[in-house]
Design a protein around this nucleic acid. Structure first.
Lengths: 150, 150
DNA sequence: TGTAAATCCTAGTTTATTACTAGGAATTCA
DNA sequence: TGAATTCCTAGTAATAAACTAGGATTTACA
């Protein structure tokens, strides 16, 4: 499994905020309830998202969170990198000056670089807007669960 | 980090065996020494590789391990999947009948499927032979460390 | 035929990471 | 003022990762 709950729950949260985009602040408890997740845990995850400028918060009663930019301007990669760190297969790919003390390290590093590049290409090409579009597409054609549930 | 030491050490081992391909069995201690890794730990990793038919073993004195197929026939993906399991971002991608109880699960699942597909494309297109070629290419142009060291 | 060099197997142990929970301070609207 | 909320720090419990230990089995070779 590449993503831990941090990344997976974080993506769900951000999708929820994207669905709510333009409708004002959404309290964390609402997000947690909609996704059946622990709100105290989500609190831990949304904190770095706020600090990295992806979401804005409003404190106090009637407060909550909202996206800091348009959904189309937030890439899945931005979210994942904040919550999981870089999705590299090995440390050496992340270093400025990787010390490949043996040549065979480099042969595996080439591989790791190719994997990293390929993952980044995907997660940096998909925005929250794309996910919202997918969401509505799935919702209208395959099922009506959301409207039934809520 | 996508790969744990299992995958990373496993790849190193297999690259070592690929470099030794055609020269008979190579004892695990030699591999461990060349890669500066614990041989008792590598023992644990090579066991599933043998059981999955990627390496053959010869027991007893003068025994060791060798690739069960030509390096060109062993893909990096074969090795990684044996040692790490499938590189999927989330469980639901691996399931036959993923139960997306809410539609938004599906929107993230589409994303996970795209990531999975992209990773598989890379790791299933690179063989041990490719890595060996990279190894010699790096060794001849960038450095001579290996020949100095051994 | 004995011995050293190997693989093979099972079961531990330690360390690190993940996945949370708890409690309370600060802020803001009604 | 009081309820609803974010914000912050520190803990804890559970799980997974990264090894280690010990011994049984096999085999080449002197």
């Amino acid at each position: 499994m590449i993503l831990s709950t941090r990344g997976r729950y974080g993506l769900k949260m951000m999708l929820e905020l994207a669905l709510n985009y333009g409708k004002g602040a959404m309290p964390l408890k609402d997000i947690a309830r909609k996704q059946s997740l622990s709100d105290t845990y989500l609190e831990q995850l949304i904190s770095p998202l706020r600090k990295s400028g992806l979401v804005n918060s409003t404190r106090g009663a009637q407060g909550g969170y909202e996206l800091a930019k348009q959904p189309s301007e937030i890439k899945v990669g931005d979210i994942i990198r904040v919550l999981e760190g870089s999705l590299a297969p090995a440390q050496c790919v992340l270093e400025e000056e990787p010390e490949c003390s043996k040549a065979d390290y480099c042969a595996t590093r080439l591989l790791y670089e190719k994997i990293t590049e390929s993952i980044n290409k995907v997660i940096d090409s998909i925005s929250l807007k794309d996910m919202v579009d997918d969401y509505y597409m799935l919702n209208n054609t395959n099922n009506k669960r959301r409207s039934e549930n809520e």
